[in-house]
Amino acid sequence: MSARPAGPPVPRTVVLGATGLGLTALAAEVLPRVLGVPDDVLPPLSVILGALAAEVPTPQFRAALAATTVQWGLGLAIAVVLGVAVGVVLGSVPWLRRLTASTVEFLRPIPSVALVPLAVLVLGTQLRSALLLIVYASFWQVLVQTMYGVADVDPVAEQTARSYGLGRWARVRHVLWPTAQPYVATGVRLAAAVALILAITAELVIGSPGLGREIAAAQSGGATALVYGLVLVTGLLGLVVNVGVRALERRLLRWHVSVRGEVAP
């Protein structure tokens, strides 16, 4: 008889992770005080959290958080739809893929931030220019992953579908799309992170409404603790995004090798 307590044991990684986070927080609190770092350089964690706690209930903060989230979500959604559609078409038509490969390889490495002046020039400091940057940066992530996914269709699965009389559209739906899904999920996860970076960047640089603009405002007001606090919020947002996409991935791809080990008996 084992004397194990009832309920699932807490995994070791969770314990270690929580401990690591706690130690980091402790260091962030203690080190500035011990080393005598001035508050306008690096305030202790409690001061940062205090400044943030004062900021969070304000309508201004909530509006900024909402604006960032909407820009991020909208930009990501457009990029995913475009990236998947173009990726499926380019991926399944070999001559089109060869025709566009060099162009894609040329356009993809252009840092989105380099397009800021252009976006402002053409679209002004509106939501549209922020969206343009977000979509441009995240589109490539989805496109490239989708094309990898389409290229991964198993010839035997494809022949099976053809031999049972499935037409082109049915094969896209039942063979190509499920095969590409894990790749698309990876693309979406990468794109989600990139989209958040670009959303904050656009707000900082262009001044479109959102957390980035609040950070810039706090900076010009010399509110160091608040700047740190808002940076923490953007980090937290990134974490929520990542965890959310991963959870979605696990749900949709429970059949896939990368997930099934955790679910199958």
Binding site: V156, A157, R162, G165, Q181
Partner: peptide, 19 residues
């Protein structure tokens, strides 16, 4: 592919759809 024909492939693991 003729409509009245069914094919059983050697590579069952790839012929069945894991999803």
């Amino acid at each position: 592919p003729p409509p009245g024909m069914a094919v059983v492939f050697q590579e069952y693991g790839r012929s069945l759809f894991p999803w």
